[in-house]
C-alpha cells in the first residue's frame, strides 16, 4: 500500500499528507488535532467475526419477546416489531414507522451491508454494488438507534415495576449482546480505510470518464 495519502480534515479542511500507519495506530490532523483516520488492530477478520456474532444475536432478538408484563395474572409481552406495530395501530402511523426504522430496519440493514462489504474486501471478491453499499452505510449511520431502544426498555421496566411483575425474556438478552458486539465491531473498523482497500482491489471499477 502507499505510504502517504492526501487528506483534508473533516473538521477544519486542512489539507495534508497523512502517513499510512501500521495497525493499531491513529493519525491526527495537523491543523486542529481531530482524528483523520485510524488503522484498526484486527484487520478485516475481527469486524467480520464480531458482526457474524451480532447477526446471530440480532436474529434471536427478533425471534423472541423482549419483556413480559404480568398484572395479577393478565399477561402481555412485546417484541421489537411489536413496539412499532402498537404505535402504528394506535393512530400514530408516522411514529410507528420511525420506531420501526430506527430500532429494527436500519440496524439490520447496517449489519447486513457491512458484512457484505467486508466479505468482498476480505476475500477480494468483486461483488456487485460494493461501492453503493459503502455509500449507503455512511448515509444511514446516524439513524441506527438499537442501543437507545435498550435503554428505553430498561426505563419502561422500572416505570412498570410498581404496578406489575416484569419478566425479562430471551430477546432482551440477545438484543443487549447484539449491541455490545456491534459496538465492538464498529470500533474495529474505519470507513476511510475500507475505501482505501476498495480502491486497491484488483479490477476495481472506476466510473467511466471521471478518472483525473
Amino acid at each position: 500500500m502507499t505510504d502517504k495519502v492526501l487528506m483534508a480534515c473533516r473538521e477544519c479542511d486542512a489539507l495534508q499528507w497523512a502517513p499510512w500507519v501500521p495497525r493499531g495506530q491513529k493519525v491526527r490532523c495537523r491543523g486542529c488535532g481531530a482524528t483523520l483516520y485510524h488503522q484498526p488492530r484486527g484487520g478485516l477478520d475481527r469486524p467480520i467475526a464480531l458482526l457474524l456474532g451480532a447477526l446471530f444475536l440480532y436474529v434471536l432478538a427478533n425471534s423472541f419477546p423482549l419483556i413480559t408484563l404480568d398484572i395479577g395474572g393478565a399477561v402481555r409481552e412485546t417484541s421489537l416489531v411489536g413496539t412499532s406495530w402498537a404505535l402504528y395501530q394506535h393512530d400514530m402511523k408516522l411514529l410507528g414507522l420511525l420506531v420501526f426504522f430506527t430500532s429494527l430496519a436500519i440496524p439490520g440493514m447496517i449489519l447486513l451491508s457491512t458484512l457484505y462489504v467486508l466479505t468482498g474486501l476480505r476475500w477480494q471478491l468483486r461483488l456487485p454494488g460494493l461501492r453503493q453499499m459503502l455509500v449507503l452505510l455512511s448515509h444511514i449511520h446516524p439513524w441506527e438507534m438499537a442501543d437507545v431502544f435498550v435503554v428505553s426498555i430498561l426505563v419502561a421496566m422500572v416505570k412498570m415495576s410498581g404496578m406489575a411483575d416484569v419478566i425479562i425474556d430471551a430477546g432482551l438478552y440477545a438484543l443487549i449482546g447484539y449491541i455490545l458486539l456491534g459496538v465492538a465491531a464498529s470500533a474495529s473498523m474505519d470507513v476511510f480505510v475500507l475505501w482505501q482497500r476498495l480502491e486497491k482491489m484488483p479490477d476495481h471499477q472506476v466510473p467511466a470518464g471521471l478518472k483525473q
Binding site: 419483556i67 402481555r76 409481552e77 412485546t78 413496539t83 406495530w85 420511525l98 428505553s152 419502561a156 416505570k159
Partner: peptide
C-alpha cells in the same frame, strides 16, 4: 418515544 411505544405495546 421508544418508552411510549413499549408501554403502548405492553
Amino acid at each position: 418515544v421508544f418508552v411510549i411505544g413499549i408501554l403502548t405495546a405492553l
